[in-house]
Design a protein around this nucleic acid. Structure first.
Lengths: 110, 110
DNA sequence: AAACTATATCGCAATATTGCAATATACTAA
DNA sequence: TTAGTATATTGCAATATTGCGATATAGTTT
């Protein structure tokens, strides 16, 4: 087929997967890191920062926004993008939970 | 084109992206969760747990293994898969770092 | 209004992913 | 060795992603 069988998994598994997938491209990781590193959040600055053409960056921003990892607000002629704390906290909690569970496990057979 | 321009990004950004991408499918999130939840790590049990055919599960396991999120060891006729602490810790640290940085930021314009 | 700036969308080609039936491999048991 | 069990690989169709030129949209400035 080619499409993920999302209906067979839990909402939480799908939510984690959707956000992880959005971060599954280095440009989108770079966007998140840029937004945290700098005080700027202007779309144009992000375009200048990344080694990709403007339409490509715009599309990456759209994907991050679609899954809720960033949000945008109009600032005059420009558009300002910021990371969304809630979404990233969900991922942080998931991985902290995972690593905590790992620490408690004894029978690692591999 | 259709291929990611990975050469333009840092090694760390690519590493995070590759692992995030591997978790960008609910079946692979489910596999990690299953390995943490149960004491079993037998491939056949994972196949039974997931709503996907055996070759499909085998491929998902291969992808998780390729990026180092799990590792496998032969156990007689079966194969035992375990989560790889190091890889998951890299992700946990990344997201903890991100959320920590978020907390310190004041000028959230969105 | 016209010209300019910033961002988004369209349309397309190249490539990657998903899923599975069929088959292959490899180990186990008789 | 033969039969059975467990896992991997192959090959294919359907779909999704990536990247960007061309273009559209929307705000700003003059």
């Amino acid at each position: 087929m080619g499409a993920s069988k999302t209906e067979h998994f839990t909402d939480k598994q799908n939510a984690i997967a959707i956000m992880a997938k959005a971060l599954g491209h280095p440009a989108r990781v770079a966007i998140i890191e840029y937004l945290l590193k700098t005080d700027s959040c202007i779309c144009g600055d992000i375009v200048n920062e990344l080694p990709l053409a403007q339409p490509t960056v715009s599309q990456h921003l759209k994907e991050l926004k679609n899954v809720g990892l960033i949000k945008g607000s109009i600032d005059g002629n420009a558009i300002c993008y910021c990371v969304d704390e809630k979404a990233l906290t969900v991922l942080q909690k998931f991985f902290t939970h995972v690593t905590t569970k790992m620490g408690k496990k004894k029978n690692n057979c591999c």
